[in-house]
Design a protein around this nucleic acid. Structure first.
Length: 492
RNA sequence: CGGGGUGUGGCGCAGUUGGCUAGCGCAUCUGGUUUGGGACCAGAAGGUCCUCCGUUCGAGUCGGAGUACCCCGACCA
């Protein structure tokens, strides 16, 4: 399979859909646009959850859970919000099936129609704010800092494995604050958590920035984003954090008595990342041999493959491996010994590469004699022979190196594909080549929309921490004055 | 909902201007030899060719209708 994939450009989609994803992580479900995440893929997601959860807790956020079903009426309270999601909602209308009177299978029982339809949550702002109303009366009740891990459903017309599925897994944080400043600070803090997570755990260099008004979350006053660049030069929004102002508090009447005893509406944030991060990983780091997992995320960091002819050799090798495994595990490394006896080593090598395991150790008779081990790293595909003596610290260091190298490689790729552009004709051709274009923009939604219509490019963000470019210039499209450059790209 | 494409053993595909017993690769099973980069040899099993209707001496192949899935657009994280 892997060897049939050659050039990256033309086979990218093929590679992504068939090779890595279908081979190991997930598959398209019979339910339209949904996906089955296989155990190995899910293990990666679980690792993401664990790391993020720890980071959230350090900011004072606690996990909670809210219902899957949202009464339709909740949904219509916030006008912008409903406009943003109305077109992609799954709706529950009935609560019972019956045998088909004409004898074939079952049908929906028409007498079991719900008085009020239920919406399968596309996001939980409405039901959460309806709940927060009952939790908040005094300034002493604030802030509320909740997160939930759950699934949501957005009935997309077109789906794409991991990036846009009808049902996906995510976390959504929802906070309530006494002041605008506090809420804004929280939204900023959380996008910072995402950036930290993306960079240090996923080895994904991301740009933090504000969304343009046109790209904001439905109902938000400000949306901040982490934007990643995939290996084909397209942008991928990897996480967002929203400052919601008092929109939801007003819609759901969430007020508190401040220290002076006056009633005020609370200020809100929400923020989320999803299984889309899995897609980001695959497309940012993968190569023709499959997935490349950063060590901090890999469910298995080291896989050991025995090489042998006779069973006695195998016993001796497995024995040696068990010792090394113990040593590595004591150093905090997760290890798997692949002792399957029906498969040849070459096959196992290829299989673990496909799964993206960062380090492979092979021990054969030659190594047993010499006291060595063959160590191969997934990121560079290079191999070297290392002494078994003191192997654990060497592997720990190697894992760190790999983590860093994967990040640096992705960063170098991004750096090589970010460029300034000041001419509309050039823009039109350059943008199709992929990458981020730093351009002046007059700040109007009209211009943004025109550019999107003509080139499919969108404003990915107004950068906050990298590629910040505060300077006077002229809008690339309209020629009107502009005070800073923004990032344009074609995105997933 | 518009435009395009594809339905053939488990998976991926070939099948010519209609022709006789529907092939190939991978996977599977059996036996043997192998094992430091996806093993090899020998043998075996496995198919209402998406469905229905039609044309024909004869349909996987031609025509019609239906149906499912995929890709491209509009929508979106």
């Amino acid at each position: 399979m892997a060897k049939e994939v050659t050039g990256r450009e033309e086979n990218y989609s093929q590679w992504y859909n068939d090779l890595v994803v279908k081979a190991d992580l997930a598959e398209q479900s019979a339910v339209r646009g949904c996906m089955v995440i296989k155990p190995y893929g899910y293990a990666i997601w679980e690792k993401m959850q664990r790391v993020l959860d720890d980071m959230f807790k350090k900011t004072g956020v606690q996990n909670a859970y809210f219902p899957l079903f949202i009464p339709k009426s909740f949904f219509s309270r916030e006008a912008e919000h409903v406009a943003g999601f109305a077109k992609e909602c799954a709706v529950v209308t009935h609560h019972r099936l019956m045998n088909d009177p004409d004898g074939k299978g079952v049908v929906v029982d028409p007498s079991a129609r719900l008085e009020e339809e239920l919406i399968v949550r596309p996001t939980s702002e409405t039901i959460i704010w309806n709940t927060y109303k009952n939790w908040v009366t005094s300034w002493r009740d604030l802030p509320i800092l909740c997160n939930q891990w759950c699934n949501v459903v957005r009935w997309e017309m077109r789906t794409r494995l991991f990036l846009r599925t009808a049902e996906f897994l995510w976390q959504e944080g929802h906070t309530a604050h006494a002041t605008a400043e506090e809420a804004q600070a929280k939204a900023l803090e959380m996008v910072g958590v995402y950036a930290d997570f993306a960079r240090n755990t996923l080895a994904l260099p991301v740009v933090v920035g504000h969304k343009s008004p046109g790209e904001r979350f439905a109902g938000a006053l400000d949306t901040m984003t982490i934007e990643a660049m995939m290996q084909d030069g397209k942008a991928l929004q990897a996480g967002t954090s929203h400052f919601l102002g008092q929109n939801f508090a007003k819609s759901f009447d969430v007020q508190f008595a401040n220290k002076e005893g006056k009633l005020e509406y609370v200020w809100a944030t929400s923020w989320g990342v999803s299984t889309r991060l899995m897609g980001a990983l695959i497309m940012a780091h993968g190569d023709d041999n499959g997935l490349v997992l950063p060590p901090k995320l890999a469910p298995i960091q080291v896989v050991m493959v025995p090489i042998y002819r006779k069973d006695e050799e195998l016993d001796a090798i497995l024995d040696k491996m068990a010792g090394v495994k113990k040593e590595l595990e004591a150093a905090g490394v997760s290890v798997k010994i692949d002792s399957r006896d029906s498969l040849r080593p070459g096959f196992k090598f290829a299989e673990w590469e496909l799964k993206g395991v960062p380090v492979r150790m092979a021990i054969g008779p030659r190594d047993l004699e010499a006291g060595t081990v063959e160590v191969a790293r997934r990121d560079t595909l290079s191999k070297e022979s290392m002494a078994l003596e003191g192997i654990a610290p060497a592997i720990v260091k190697l894992l760190d190196d790999i983590q860093e190298n994967i990040y640096n490689k992705a960063l170098a790729f991004r750096e090589a594909n970010v460029r300034k552009c000041d001419d509309w004709e050039t823009f039109k051709t350059e943008i199709q080549k992929g990458g981020f274009l730093l351009c002046h923009w007059d700040g109007t939604p009209e211009t943004e929309e025109k550019i999107k219509e003509e080139t499919k490019a969108t404003i990915r963000c107004i950068p906050m921490d990298s590629y910040v470019c505060e300077e006077e210039g002229k809008c690339i499209y309209s020629g009107k004055p502009s005070h800073r450059r923004v990032i344009f790209a074609i995105s997933y």
